[in-house]
Design a protein around this nucleic acid. Structure first.
Lengths: 226, 226
DNA sequence: GGAGATCACTTTGGATCAGTTTTACACCGA
DNA sequence: TCGGTGTAAAACTGATCCAAAGTGATCTCC
C-alpha cells in the first residue's frame, strides 16, 4: 500500500476519531496493555478514550480486517488469540522474507546502507551490554526492518512488519530468552560482514541459523498445544 | 488466522449485516464489478444491497483494514488503486512464497498430493485446449493454492491468497497474455514432474522462470508509470 | 442439596438525525 | 471565453436511541 494515509508505517495525522481510536487501540494491543483474549467493549473503550461508541465500532472493524482483533456476532470484539502454530508460521515466514530481501537487495546494497546496518548492529550490541533491553529490542526491529526494506519489495516489507509486531506482542507475554541476546549481536555483525563481502550464501545461512535457534527458543516457551 | 469466522478462506454463515456486506463488496471488487479507483458511497451501497448505512460503514472499515479499499477522512472510500510497483511487488512476493512452500513441503509431499496436483495440471491443460478460459484461471488458482498449502505454513498461504486475489483483480482490467497459456500448462507439468523426482532445485528454477516471464508480460501491459 | 428455568442486566446491532466538510455547478467579472 | 467565487447539494462524521441477543444470578422445583 504505497500511499495509505492510515498506514502504520507512515506517521498519520489521525484527524478523525476513527483513525485516532484505531491507532490507540492498536498500540495498546501491540504494547501489551491489552492482552490476547481480552474483550474489547465499545462502551468501555469509548469512555476510556473519550470518543463516542460509533468511531470505536469502526475502529474495531478496521482492526478486525488487519487481523488484530476477532469479532463474533452478538458477542463483541476480543484481541486475537495467538496459538503456537500461528506464531511459528509467522516467524518462519518472516525469516523467509528476510532471506528473500537479502538475496534481492544484495546487488543494490550501497556502502552507505551497509554502514547504516553496521551502525545499528553496534548500537544493539552497546544497548545489550548496557542492559537497556527495551531500547535493544527496538534497535533490533529497526535493523531487520531496514534489512527487508533494502530488499526493495514494499509488500514484503509490509508483511514483515505486521508479522514482527504480532510476534513481538506475543513474546512480551512469554518473556525473552536472555541467553540469545549476546549471540544475536554477534549474528548481526556476521550478517553485516557477509553483506559487505556480497556473500549471499553466507548471509542466508546466518539468517536460517538464527531462525532455527529462535524457533527453538519460542517453542520451548509455549505449552505443548498453546 | 486459524479460526477467523469472517475469513474468506472458510465458508462463513455471515449472520449479521456487516459480514454479509463485507463479503458482497469484496466479491464485487475481486470479480471486477467495481473497478479500482471507484468511489464506494455508503448510501448508494446501502440502497443497492438492502442494508442501512451503518453496517456499510463498518464493512468498508473492515475492507480498509484488509487493504482492499482506501478511506480518506471526509472524502469517503474508494477501491484501492493498483499501481505498477504494487502489482509487481506483490507478484514477486507470491513467487517467493511458492518457492518457499515447495522447498518446505517437498519432504511431506505424499504421492496422493502429487497426484492431486497432476490432476489439476491436466484439468488446466484440457480447459485451455477447450477454450474455457474462466475455468482455466480458476484451476490455475487452485493448483497454486494447493501447492502453497502443501508447504504447511498457514500464514504464507494467507498472504499468497490475498496477493493472488489482488493480482487477479488487476489483470482482469488489463487482459491476459494469450501466448502464455499453453506454456503455462507445460510449466505446470514440469513442476509436477520435478516434485515427483523430489528435485527442489528444478522446481525452484521452473517457478522463477515462470515468474520472470509473467513479470515481463505484466509490465508490458501497464503504462510506463501506471 | 442440586439442577434447570426465569428474569434482570449488560452489550451489541441497526437506525435515525444533526453538524461539518467536500464538491459540483452556476454565476459573475475580467 | 476563461478563470474565480459563492452557493447549494451531497456525502461523511459523530451521537443518541431502541431493539435484540447474550450473560449471569437468583429462585423454584425435584
Amino acid at each position: 500500500m504505497p500511499n495509505d494515509p492510515a498506514d502504520a508505517l507512515t506517521l498519520d495525522p489521525a484527524q478523525n476519531s476513527v483513525d485516532q481510536a484505531t491507532r490507540l487501540i492498536r498500540e495498546d494491543i501491540l504494547s501489551g496493555r491489552i492482552a490476547p483474549g481480552d474483550r474489547l467493549k465499545t462502551a468501555e473503550l469509548a469512555k476510556q478514550l473519550g470518543f463516542s461508541t460509533m468511531p470505536l465500532r469502526e475502529a474495531l472493524r478496521k482492526l478486525e480486517g488487519e487481523g488484530l482483533v476477532a469479532i463474533e456476532p452478538n458477542r463483541g470484539a476480543t484481541v486475537r488469540k495467538l496459538d503456537r502454530a500461528y506464531i511459528t508460521d509467522l516467524f518462519e515466514l518472516n525469516t523467509e522474507l528476510r532471506v528473500f530481501a537479502v538475496r534481492r537487495g544484495m546487488a543494490a546494497l550501497t556502502l552507505e546502507r551497509i554502514r547504516e546496518l553496521e551502525a545499528l548492529a553496534s548500537e544493539y550490541r552497546a544497548q545489550i551490554e548496557a542492559g537497556e533491553d527495551i531500547a535493544a529490542i527496538e534497535t533490533n526491529r529497526r535493523f531487520n526492518a531496514r534489512l527487508v526494506e533494502f530488499g526493495g519489495n514494499r509488500e514484503a516489507l509490509r508483511v514483515f512488519q505486521r508479522g514482527w509486531d504480532t510476534i513481538f506482542a506475543f513474546r512480551r507475554g512469554f518473556g525473552y530468552g536472555t541467553g540469545r541476546r549476546r549471540v544475536m549481536a554477534e549474528e548481526m555483525q556476521l550478517l553485516v560482514d557477509a553483506l559487505r563481502r556480497q556473500d549471499a550464501t553466507a548471509a542466508e545461512a546466518i539468517l536460517r541459523m538464527q531462525n532455527a535457534a529462535m524457533m527453538e527458543d519460542l517453542v520451548s516457551r509455549i505449552a505443548p498445544e498453546g
